[in-house]
């Protein structure tokens, strides 16, 4: 089993705009992102965010939902209406489902409930950027290394040999293979594979990964799934 320390696969240096009204969280987040080599501009309210977006362009916008002056969702609506296509990850303290739906409807690319690990954020940023770069490869046959997954035909092969998988195992493998080379957090897998908008109390992700590893195991071939400690899993590209 391969275990990586967190943040071993850094993102390329990005221009990130952080909009957060809590001074300490804003400083914490900025410092952490800067430590990873990103250029961070941090502002404290909605109006400042709109101004900042008008003055410069960013790779990612991290937008707190509850903001003084102009609310986060309202900021999002306004910049989308003005044609600003910057990827947006909404940050929220509450995680109410209705808010989530509203946020995504308003044009957010992802939605993250506070508190979150930096690695979780990194994984989300990476996924959002990847999705923007290569949108919707949903129904195609997915390949990573020696593994091929055809979701539609429910077929999986490794090194040319067919492998039998249960429905959930196949969905999980498809997500990992689609994002091969990127870390997927447990939360992301819960959302995408199981479709839950809450965090279950049991370790369903780990149990399925374990099973998947057993199923993919072949003599002489390495484990294609990498465990990223404290974050989630990554499929070898």
């Amino acid at each position: 089993m391969s275990v990586l320390a967190p943040s071993v696969t850094p993102l390329p240096a990005l221009q990130i705009l952080v909009v957060e009204d809590d001074a300490e969280l804003r400083a914490q987040l900025s410092a952490q992102l800067q430590a990873q080599g990103h250029a961070v501009v941090a502002v404290e309210d909605g109006r400042a965010a709109i101004t900042a977006l008008a003055e410069a362009s960013y790779d990612v916008l991290l937008l707190d939902r509850m903001l003084p002056t102009v609310d986060g969702v309202e900021v999002l609506r306004r910049i989308r209406a003005e044609g600003v296509e910057t990827p947006v990850i909404l940050l929220t303290a509450l995680g109410l489902t209705q808010e989530r739906v509203e946020g995504l409807d308003a044009g957010a690319d992802d939605y993250l409930v506070k508190p979150f690990e930096l690695d979780e954020l990194n994984a989300r940023i990476r996924a959002v950027l990847r999705r923007r770069a290569a949108p919707s490869a949903d129904n195609a046959t997915l390949t990573a290394g020696d593994v091929t997954v055809s979701v539609l035909r429910h077929r999986v092969t490794r090194a040319g040999k067919s492998i039998e998988l249960q429905k959930t195992e196949l969905k999980l493998l498809a997500e990992l293979v689609r994002e091969a080379g990127s870390v997927l957090s447990r939360k992301m897998l819960i959302e995408r594979v199981w479709g839950y908008d809450f965090v279950p109390a049991t370790n369903i992700v780990d149990v399925h990964i374990l099973k998947l590893r057993q199923r993919l195991e072949m003599p002489g071939l390495p484990d294609p799934i990498v465990t990223v400690r404290g974050v989630g899993y990554m499929f070898r590209a």
Binding site: D22, E24, L25, Q28, Q32, A93, L94, K114, P115, F116, L118
Partner: peptide, 11 residues
Amino acid sequence: LRTPLARLHGR
């Protein structure tokens, strides 16, 4: 409560 908890968690 969640905001300070988030900070604590982050630290």
